[in-house]
Design a protein around this nucleic acid. Sequence first.
DNA 1: GCATTAATAAAACAAGCGTTCATTTAATTC
DNA 2: GAATTAAATGAACGCTTGTTTTATTAATGC
Lengths: 214, 214
Amino acid sequence: MARTAGSDGQKTEAAIRDAALNLIARHGYEAVTMRQLGEEVGVQAAALYRYFPTKEELLFDLMTGHMEALIESWEEARPASSEPADRLAAFVVNHIRFHVERRHSTHVNNMELRSLSRDRLSAILRLRNRYEKELRLILREGAEDGSFRVEDSALTAMAIIQMITGVIVWFRPDERLSVDQVTETYLAMTMRLVGAEEFEEKKNVRAGAEFRAW
Amino acid sequence: MARTAGSDGQKTEAAIRDAALNLIARHGYEAVTMRQLGEEVGVQAAALYRYFPTKEELLFDLMTGHMEALIESWEEARPASSEPADRLAAFVVNHIRFHVERRHSTHVNNMELRSLSRDRLSAILRLRNRYEKELRLILREGAEDGSFRVEDSALTAMAIIQMITGVIVWFRPDERLSVDQVTETYLAMTMRLVGAEEFEEKKNVRAGAEFRAW
DNA sequence: GCATTAATAAAACAAGCGTTCATTTAATTC
DNA sequence: GAATTAAATGAACGCTTGTTTTATTAATGC
């Protein structure tokens, strides 16, 4: 046998990415074999090499795609407001939504940096830094204009990112907590963490009695 | 050759644990080979099997050791005070100190859960839960007696743990930030996060002018 | 100082790894 | 409808993996 009926390169490539994210997120990059990945896609291992030259290149492709999508998602979500509190709120909400929607991809990006070669690693770190810079800027400006209380904007940025990315480690939407509820709570915690004390009350005024402490 | 001059089982075993933590933290469990580990210890790969029956058992031993040491460290650090704010502060300080002192061990415990078999995994998760329960209790009691503002104690516990464990991902003591400074800042952020507003002022009163916003 | 035990080396095991290659079949083009 | 291109197969390559076996040496107990 060789080419199979109904086969389509574009679909296969997408299926490879999808299966790779699933498998790597669950078992780790090193533990996933090309044969295993091929089986998940429904293809021989050799066929994978039509689409990705090496296993590591596939990993790099997945991670780059994730970071670029994250940056793009923030560029679209970034609010018109110049108020630090509004911008921070938008950042947190967008970040959580993005990562909850892409658990596998996020796991891969957080866990598999060490499997990249030096050059590819620093390419990913550059993208990361570009994203994190956005948060540091918000924090710095909020600290300067007095709306936030922040000891060290770089440190606080890391703390916030760890906290809000950590959602995907434990959270699964269930009967007790929905994505919106979790997002709302993380937002409130973040605002208190940076000492933006009036934020919630102002929001409550705007939104009427909609906010409830469940 | 066979037994080498000056060889000592206890020293070898400790050296294996040490080398394994280092290698696994840096390259990941799957990527580390028994031959590589043997070389790091200064011993043939086969000699490792005198001390650990399988590679996975070695991993499990490392992870169990880490969790038991963490639980023990908290039992010793737990303060006499019944004030939720004091207990939370002690928890955060102890947690950060412990994890900064054991970066490698922490990395292994955070990253390699997926390499454990079902039974061994749930044994580690039981230890984890025992530890996290301590934080949840502090938060619940603080929320009940009005000293904290916490929307959901389980969720907040996870958020805090993600945040304060995340220190080890980015932090290296340097000329800009010392361990104590970082700990102090994380503590302040945690206290604001749970809405323990008076904590810092009270502490300042106790400690005089020692606290400074650097 | 002899027997025993602990610690290791060295070699071998079967299985599995990422990757390459020649080939075959399906779809597309003209 | 023949020629071309795209997509995939199946076998093989050389190497590495975790682990086992066997043999040998050093330390220990009496």
